[in-house]
């Protein structure tokens, strides 16, 4: 098996499985992408779990807890798929703690009000869905199957967020203001979740050639914006972009300039919650060390008894 045969498989839309030959570059790209995807799910639990204890009704509480729990599950599917490439979960977690691996920068923003739960479900999960639907067709078998499983679960996430926003937008004036405020804070970070513009994206070439990535950042971003504008209009909230306008010729929405300086600044560690998110993850891990050790000791004892 060599590079030529490998590329032929890719071009024929065949899946690559764990025991197949693959170029080192393909393996490394996947490890980085899948692990960062997994880390994002897990770190992504934090901004939302903040509000579970303060959810304003029994129903809202259960739904939010179920949603955040799903994110943990998604993290597990992805770590599991990533491990098929010959790296352990422990190594991956270590990379996260050593800041050698990243996670989606959207989770470096704080959740300040209950309406943020609506904004995150609607916009952040919405953006994730656009990305993940596309990734269902990724060339690596385990990643593709994980994406299919995740997509099935993800649409409830977006619906619960949108439902929160819709209810608040037609509620009391304070609720509507809270919802609009959340939309104002999460809109731009959400559309920047799709990553740098295509012109600035260094690794895209191989990712597209190897069909790890099926659509470009800009294509996915446009897809998301086109879907979401109408949703905001239906519930009577205003997207904070004065340049947002339907372009009849293109058949898409034109939108305003994104603040890439802020984006890169946050990605590189200067966001409101970067330190807090990692500290939280490290602390949970350290606090659990004695438990994991005890479980291992107990298991060993069972073998010798």
């Amino acid at each position: 098996m060599d590079e030529k045969k490998f590329q032929e498989k890719i071009d024929k839309e065949q899946k690559i499985e764990p025991k197949d030959w693959m170029p080192e570059g393909y393996r490394n790209h996947l490890i980085r992408q899948m692990s960062q995807h997994a880390h994002s799910e897990v770190i992504g639990m934090q901004p939302e779990r903040n509000w579970i204890t303060r959810a304003p009704s029994l129903r809202a509480k259960m739904i939010l807890l179920a949603k955040v729990q799903d994110e943990a599950g998604h993290g597990l599917y992805l770590y599991s798929a990533c491990e098929t490439l010959g790296i352990s979960r422990q190594e991956l977690v270590q990379q996260l703690h050593d800041e050698k691996a990243k996670y989606s920068s959207i989770f470096n923003y704080p959740t300040l009000t209950w309406a943020d739960m609506g904004a995150i479900g609607w916009l952040v999960d919405g953006a994730a869905i656009v990305n993940q639907v596309s990734l269902q067709r990724t060339s690596y078998g385990p990643y593709s199957r994980a994406m299919i499983k995740i997509c099935k679960e993800e649409s409830f996430h977006q619906r619960q967020g949108y439902e929160i926003m819709a209810e608040m937008a037609k509620g009391t004036p304070e609720q509507k203001e809270m919802a609009q405020d959340a939309l104002n804070r999460f809109w731009w970070p959400s559309i920047m979740m799709f990553g740098p513009q295509d012109s600035e994206s260094p690794r895209s070439g191989n990712a597209m050639k190897w069909k790890i990535k099926r659509q470009t950042n800009d294509e996915l971003r446009q897809n998301f914006i086109d879907k979401t504008v109408g949703q905001a209009e239906v519930i009577g909230l205003k997207i904070p972009d004065p340049d947002l306008k339907w372009n009849e010729e293109r058949g898409h929405y034109d939108f305003g300039k994104m603040d890439w300086e802020e984006f890169w600044s946050v990605v590189n560690g200067n966001g409101p919650c970067n330190k807090q998110r990692l500290d939280h993850h490290r602390k949970a891990h350290e606090d659990g060390a004695w438990v994991r050790k005890a479980a291992q000791e107990f298991a060993k004892k069972q073998l010798t008894n």
Binding site: L65, V68, Q69, L76, K283, A284
Partner: peptide, 22 residues
């Protein structure tokens, strides 16, 4: 139980604790 969300000793146990909460 829901205070444990994202703080479990393992990710699997995190899910288990949330299920109990639910």
């Amino acid at each position: 139980m829901c205070e444990w969300c994202s703080k479990g000793p393992t990710l699997e146990e995190d899910i288990a604790l949330s299920n109990i909460g639910l």
